[in-house]
Amino acid sequence: MRNQIIRRAVYLALGLMLAAGCAAAGEEESRNTVAGSSGREPEATLLARVLGVDYAPGAVTVTAVATDPAGGEADVLLTASGDTLAQAMDALPTAGESWLALTHVTQLVLGDRADLEEVLTYVMNSAQMDDTATVWCAPVPAAGLLEECGGGVDRLTVLEQKEEVDTVTVAQALEYWREGGEVALPALAWQGETLEAAGVLLFSEVL
């Protein structure tokens, strides 16, 4: 009888754990809550490859570039804004017709006024985004640059493999920033009709 009670108690506990899930505290939607139904069917999902972040007085704009899963040539650009970075990121997944997943973002482009530390910290703490994404910066708004080059997914992938370009990941950039107070990020520029690497830009706390 006692064994039966213990067995039923264990099953009940496991069942309650299953129902409650492990909701992440504080930030974006948990992926494991049954009540929230956070699972997404793949056909209803777009995968963002590139994320651009622009800061303006009182507003933050994020731009995501996703490739067409069917293999079409045109990249899909989606934009969302908010008072803060967190608000803009919350609005981004529902900016288009399909749900935008940020799980496969490999390139992060910071616009000319982006708050480096806030953006990098957000990506590091995100349950979706990967801290191995390559960080770029641009002396112009990222949204415009990405729109001008039609997304730039493939071009950025080519650029980061060039020998003369010293790429930095999100994790590395944040580490350099926190330890040394400065980080040099590879810069992007629209030259002629193509997106090119244009040296580096030094971000410094002093500046």
Binding site: R31, R40, E41, E43, P69, G71, A101, H104
Partner: peptide, 21 residues
């Protein structure tokens, strides 16, 4: 596929998405 697409490589994920459309 449903809950943890970040585990699946991009090309495979795109292939699954395209096949499941």
């Amino acid at each position: 596929v449903v809950f943890h697409p970040e585990m699946i490589p991009l090309r495979l994920m795109n292939s699954i998405i395209a096949a499941k459309s």
